[in-house]
């Protein structure tokens, strides 16, 4: 889902850059307010965690393999604004170190995978915990559905940006991206669910702070 350079036109790239920059500066303020500077080492280690967790790949279908995006897990465990910052750092690193995703397309990639993925997962998680009650079942279902939806919505945003740029026609890019990521999302959902249930058993206190 990392868009390389050359696939977006300049108008789309500029719009998403503006949106992401504004969002990040708000996220920085929000995180400074809630988490304090002392949590920075923790967030750095967790960014490295997302980075490393993306190396845990699994088979999707045929030869293709999917891997965790991690935005949903980060958003549920740390809250959406912290997740946005962590994912942004991961995406910048992937762009500059591995050339996974372009520099001019970075705004769009951050918009899709940091903002849309984190917030969709977080709100769906919140919705389910209020529907089923804030217990183990509600959290697990919320986490699983949120993770699946975050992957799908991020890929659809990606498809829309590509179509607006005139790179690929709507009737191709929407079903192609959406379809593949609906499958990849299942893996993301199961992994997020399994990781959440393990965290709830082993370190239930970690899920408490962001409730307040």
């Amino acid at each position: 889902m990392h868009i390389p350079d050359g696939f977006l036109n300049v108008a789309t790239a500029a719009t998403t850059y503006a949106a992401s920059t504004g969002g990040i500066s708000y996220a920085v303020k929000e995180v400074n307010k809630n988490l304090k500077e002392k949590q920075v080492p923790l967030m750095g280690v967790l960014a490295a965690f997302i980075f490393a967790a993306q190396m845990l790949n699994f088979q999707v279908i045929g030869g293709t393999s999917g891997h965790l995006i991690g935005a949903a897990l980060a958003a549920i465990l740390l809250g959406p604004w912290a997740a946005v910052l962590i994912m942004t750092c991961v995406l910048i690193a992937q762009c500059l170190i591995f050339q996974d995703g372009g520099l001019l397309a970075l705004g769009a990639n951050i918009f899709n995978m940091a903002f849309i993925a984190s917030f969709s997962a977080y709100f769906i998680y919140k919705l389910f915990t209020s529907l089923f009650g804030d217990n183990k079942k509600g959290r697990l279902i919320g986490g699983v559905v949120g993770a699946w939806a975050s992957v799908l919505l991020a890929s659809i945003a990606c498809a829309i940006e590509l179509a607006i740029s005139g790179t690929s026609p709507w009737q191709v890019v929407l079903p192609a991206m959406g379809g593949i990521h609906a499958l990849i999302g299942i893996g993301e959902a199961i992994i997020t669910g399994a990781a959440l249930s393990l965290v709830m058993v082993a370190r239930a206190d970690l899920l408490q702070p962001q409730k307040a």
Binding site: L46, A53, A195, V199
Partner: peptide, 15 residues
């Protein structure tokens, strides 16, 4: 599921 357990373990260890 195994990968999920690994991700969870990795998260706790990182934290």
């Amino acid at each position: 599921k195994t990968v999920g357990a690994m991700a969870g373990t990795l998260f706790i260890r990182s934290y």
